[in-house]
């Protein structure tokens, strides 16, 4: 049994996988003769993960109503996934939009309580949370706003811990908690309730070296979103523009592991040094071909990284 187990964030498949099971292959293929049929249902998509060697998955916040509607309950979804070889739905992604304003805290906490309950019922271990509004229209945050967001995160984290779930600050290059105040925000939060998930591409785009960041914050970093990028320290006007996450020209921010410039071997050496154990997740939202990206990422892990630490 190795030290690392691999999970995959499922947001690259689209906002919502359409069906639990596509009943009739021909219904979608005949007359179209394309490959879309391979992307329409959880049944196949879960099996792709297992086939590539990913035994864990993560779900986005917008999956909550879908899961309840189509699988009856989060446990119903987790059981469906287990039947197809997924060991665990390891966690979820949520948002704390508006947390920089205390007036919004009741709504932010209510939304995240739903996500905490959802994550627990899925059998997840962690919840990764964008800690405030997007930068466009909201940033930069004042010290007081940052304090408000940190207090809100601490409360979310406390509630999560009550259910045995670790709440992790998830940095986004387009979040109001941005390059100039991310570290201050980490320091403002309580280590008991607020861990940090190192998203290797997001921090690179903001101008942080992810390897150095792990070295500095390894005690706070309980989880990883591993993705590659070829953009380091993007200019403010690009990173903080309206809807920056989906580039107006359609260019990619994120690449499969090994497709960009992130020093993953360097990171793996530190994982070994600090003897990190447990689930780590790959996330490659925005890829034009999720299946190709899934397989390429795992091949890179197996051939380039696992020899360093596994």
């Amino acid at each position: 049994m190795g030290n690392l187990k691999y999970s995959y964030m499922t947001n690259m498949w689209g906002l919502m996988v359409r069906y639990p099971v596509a009943n009739q292959w021909g219904e979608w293929y005949e007359g179209d003769f394309g490959n879309s049929v391979y992307y329409l249902d959880w049944d196949k998509i879960l099996r792709y993960h297992v086939g590539a060697g990913f035994k864990g998955i993560e779900l986005m916040f917008h999956m909550l109503p879908y899961v309840n509607e189509y699988f009856g309950s989060p446990k119903g979804f987790a059981d469906f996934a287990k039947e197809r070889g997924i060991e665990q739905v390891t966690g979820t992604f949520s948002l704390a939009l508006g947390s920089e304003d205390r007036a919004n805290h009741p709504a932010v906490l209510a939304m995240n309580q739903k996500m905490i309950d959802f994550t627990a019922e899925l059998g997840g271990e962690n919840i990764n949370i964008m800690p405030a509004s997007g930068y466009f229209g909201h940033g930069p945050l004042s010290k007081e706003q940052l304090r408000n967001a940190a207090d809100c995160f601490n409360e979310i984290g406390r509630r999560a811990l009550d259910k045995g779930i670790v709440a992790c600050i998830h940095s986004e290059f387009w979040c109001a908690v941005n390059k100039y105040d991310l570290e201050r925000f980490i320091e403002m939060t309580d280590p008991k309730y607020a861990a940090f998930v190192l998203d290797t591409a997001q921090v690179s785009i903001m101008g942080f070296d992810p390897v150095a960041m792990y070295d500095k914050y390894h005690e706070r970093i309980k989880y990883f979103h591993l993705k590659d990028t070829n953009i380091f320290d993007a200019p403010d006007e690009k990173r903080c523009a309206a809807g920056a996450e989906f580039n107006d020209e359609g260019d990619r921010w994120f690449w499969e592991l090994g497709g960009g410039t992130v020093d993953f071997p360097g990171l793996w050496k530190l994982l070994k040094k600090y003897q990190h154990k447990g689930w780590v997740a790959v996330e490659t939202d925005g890829t034009p071909d999720p299946l190709a990206t899934l397989v390429l990422s795992k091949a890179y892990i197996d051939t380039e990284l696992a020899p360093i630490y596994s």
């Binding site: 947001n11 690259m12 498949w13 689209g14 906002l15 919502m16 996988v17 359409r18 490959n35 879309s36 992307y39 329409l40 998509i45 989906f246 359609g250 939202d285 925005g286 034009p288 071909d289 999720p290």
Partner: peptide, 9 residues
């Protein structure tokens, strides 16, 4: 809303 190649674009 639903899944597919290049859907997020």
């Amino acid at each position: 809303k639903s899944s597919g190649p290049s859907k997020l674009r």
